[in-house]
Amino acid sequence: MAAKDLFSTGVQRARRFYLESGSTRADLRVVCGGWERCSSDYEVRRDGFPMFGIEYVAGGEGDLTLGGRPYRLSPGTVFSYGPGVAQVIGSDRRRVLDKYFVDFSGRAGERLIADAGLDGGQVRQVAAPERISVIFEDLIVNGLRQTAYSGAICAAILRHLLLALCECAVPFGTLATPGFATYARCRRHLEEHALTVRSLAVAAAQCGVSEAYFCRLFQRFDRQSPYQALTRLRMREAVRRFETPGSRVATVAAAVGYDDPFHFSRVFKRVYGVSPQQFRRVRARSAPVDALD
């Protein structure tokens, strides 16, 4: 299929790429992608699409009918389509759509779309919109390079995009609910106080909710328990502190909230696959000479 058959008309500006055909048996193959600023009369009507497509609204507003169901598009909305999924996409006349898109094929993409809750033509919202925009921009930059490696690089970036959507996409309409607002407040509190919070019960109380509700919020909106979120925040800070030459395991453990350095070491290895001592040795070998003086 030629690029002209895939790219929409009725746009004011666009940055788009089309990759030459690779192996049709590839586990994941990016066909095209880009960014579009729609015109006020932008409208796309399709009975289906020959491959998988994902579109992400970065700005403006519009209307979408997907599989016969209507949705109002706004920044942070992400939706998918594919074979047999009818779609009508239109832009608001005053606040025209800015949107990213990527079209692809392959069984790996199909699996990851399903993991993100976007299979069969679904609409979701993104809790971390800037993160998704950055990934799309990286995809466009590499797609436009048109080198011998562009296809493989874009496929890797698409995997990154789909995994990020697995992590931060939530059901459509969620972002406006009181429950999500409470979760966002609890998540922010955990991020700001990860090194000093002594228990989940204390963190929940500081946020003004019960521990049971605190846990349900994270399971619903974060796809992980608050304990897992807290552990990852602490381990991330531990890695940062290990960047300092001469840092000691016991000192770092205490600084990130672990009284027992042996327990800290077990958790660190479970998260990163290596012990703190192994991590420090690797970092020391790769550090600049003047950083070790």
Rank of each mutant, 00 (worst) to 15 (best):
R69D: 10
Y149N: 12
A205E: 14
V274R: 12
G117N: 08
R270N: 13
Y81I: 09
R94E: 15
A3E: 13
V141Y: 08
T182V: 10
Q125Y: 02
Y71S: 01
R187V: 06
L161H: 00
E137N: 12
G273K: 02
A181E: 08
S74M: 08
R25F: 08
A14L: 07
T24N: 06
D41E: 12
F242K: 00
A58W: 06
Q219D: 12
S150Q: 02
L6Y: 05
D293L: 12
C166I: 04
E167T: 14
R281P: 02
Y100M: 13
D290A: 09
L112M: 12
T9Y: 03
G246D: 13
C32E: 12
P178Y: 11
D259F: 07
A128C: 07
Q206T: 03
R234N: 12
L28N: 00
R240K: 11
A204I: 03
F7I: 09
L200Q: 11
L162M: 04
A181W: 03
P129W: 03
A194C: 12
D115Q: 09
G208I: 05
G53E: 15
V44F: 04
L73F: 04
F79D: 13
G121Q: 13
F136I: 01
V282L: 11
G76C: 00
F104D: 00
A58P: 04
F136C: 01
A3T: 01
M235Q: 10
K99R: 13
E243A: 14
L139R: 00
E20S: 11
I140N: 02
Q277M: 13
V289P: 05
E237R: 10
V274K: 08
Q125K: 05
K269C: 14
Q278N: 14
C215G: 09
G143R: 03
P50I: 07
R280G: 09
V102E: 03
R188E: 14
R145I: 11
V209Y: 00
T244I: 14
G257K: 11
Q125W: 02
F264E: 09
A184C: 03
V271P: 03
L217Y: 00
A184R: 07
I157C: 01
V209T: 09
A58K: 10
R124W: 04
N142F: 09
S286A: 15
A253T: 11
S91V: 11
V249Q: 13
R94T: 11
R95Y: 14
D27I: 01
G246Q: 08
S21K: 10
S23M: 06
F136M: 02
K269H: 10
T251S: 14
R285N: 13
P261S: 15
L139C: 01
C186E: 03
T24W: 05
R93L: 13
D98W: 05
T231K: 08
E137G: 14
C32D: 14
M51A: 14
S275K: 04
R241G: 07
R16I: 06
A250F: 06
P70V: 08
G173D: 06
L19T: 03
V249Y: 05
F214L: 09
T244F: 05
A250I: 10
P83M: 14
R248S: 15
